[in-house]
Amino acid sequence: MIFHVSTSRIDAHGSLARCKSAEVFLDTDLAGRSDAFNPAELLLAALSACIIKGVERVTPILKFELRGVEVRIEGIRQDAPPKMESITYEIIVDSDERERRLELLHDNVRKYGTVFNTIAPGTQLSGTLRRKNLA
């Protein structure tokens, strides 16, 4: 598979990334801005999307019953050299499946995620998968 993304600078405050028929406004302002993802946040968003896509991919194969999924991610940036030092995630699954099946889902997400497996070798990447608490 080959992926194509084109990003253009709009001005000193932002840029626009395009892929297929989608557009994402990016925070490329040196001062930062609150209405767009900066590059580090975009990386974390890509990882969270990869995790959810992995869940979507394997749930039919495992015949895993799922009502919803949420991913929370935190990245810690190192200054010198600049990089993501560590990333932790929490996958929250709304499901009545047994604990062993939750572990199996987590194993599959870690094993088959493209972005997950790209980030993991160069960053301390760890996380958990848990059942959503009933309100």
Score class of each variant (00 low, 15 high):
Leu102Ala: 03
Lys83Thr: 11
Gly113Trp: 01
Arg67Trp: 03
Gly32Thr: 07
Val71Gly: 01
Ser34Asn: 15
Leu102Tyr: 04
Arg33Ala: 07
Asp29Arg: 12
Arg57Ser: 15
Ile51Glu: 06
Ile52Asp: 07
Asn133Trp: 01
Thr88Lys: 08
Pro60Gln: 10
His13Ser: 08
Leu26Thr: 07
Ser21Cys: 10
Pro81Asn: 08
Leu26Ile: 13
Leu105Arg: 00
Thr7Val: 14
Phe37Tyr: 14
Glu85His: 15
Phe3Lys: 15
Lys111Trp: 06
Pro81Cys: 08
Gly113Leu: 06
Thr7Phe: 05
Leu62Ser: 07
Thr123Gly: 04
Val115Trp: 07
Leu62Cys: 05
Leu16Met: 15
Arg98Leu: 07
Leu102Val: 05
Glu99Asn: 08
Glu97Thr: 05
Leu134Thr: 15
Ile87Phe: 08
Ala36Ile: 03
Val71His: 00
His106Arg: 09
Val109Leu: 04
Asn117His: 09
Glu70Ala: 09
His13Ala: 06
Gln78Ile: 10
Asp107Gly: 03
Ala45Ile: 09
Pro82Thr: 13
Thr118Asp: 06
Cys19Ser: 15
Ile119Glu: 02
Leu43Asn: 09
Glu97Met: 14
Arg101Thr: 06
Met1Lys: 13
Pro121Met: 05
Ser15Ala: 15
Ser8Met: 09
Ile119Tyr: 05
Asp35Leu: 05
Leu42Trp: 02
Tyr112Gln: 04
Ala36Tyr: 05
Ser15Leu: 05
Leu42Asp: 06
Lys20Gln: 14
Thr7His: 09
Ser6Arg: 12
Asp94Phe: 03
Ile52Pro: 00
Phe3His: 14
Thr114Pro: 00
His4Ala: 13
Phe25Thr: 10
Ser48Pro: 00
Ser34Leu: 14
Ala36Ser: 11
Glu56Gln: 12
Ala46Thr: 10
Leu129Ala: 10
Asn133Gln: 12
Ala22Glu: 13
Ser95Ala: 08
Ile2Cys: 07
Glu70Pro: 00
Gln78Thr: 11
Phe116Met: 13
Lys83Asp: 03
Leu104Tyr: 02
Arg98Gln: 11
Ile92Asn: 01
Tyr89Glu: 01
Phe3Pro: 00
Thr7Pro: 02
Ala49Pro: 01
Asp11Tyr: 08
Asp79Thr: 11
Lys111Arg: 15
Asn133Tyr: 03
His4Trp: 09
Glu23Val: 08
Ser21Asn: 14
Leu129Trp: 00
Leu62Gly: 05
Ser126Glu: 11
Asp107Cys: 03
Ser6Gly: 11
Ile2Ala: 11
Leu62Asp: 04
Ser21Val: 11
Val71Gln: 00
Ile73Lys: 09
Ala31His: 10
Lys111Ala: 14
Asp11Gly: 06
Leu62Asn: 04
Asp11Arg: 10
Pro81Gly: 06
Ala46Gly: 15
Arg98Cys: 03
Cys50Lys: 04
Val55Arg: 03
Arg9Gly: 09
Pro81Tyr: 09
Leu44Gly: 01
Asp27Ala: 09
Leu30Ala: 14
Leu66Cys: 11
Ala22Asn: 14
Val115Ala: 12
Pro39Gly: 04
Asp35Asn: 11
Lys83Trp: 03
Glu23Asp: 10
Asp107Lys: 11
Val93Tyr: 02
Pro39Asn: 07
Asp79Gln: 11
Lys63Val: 05
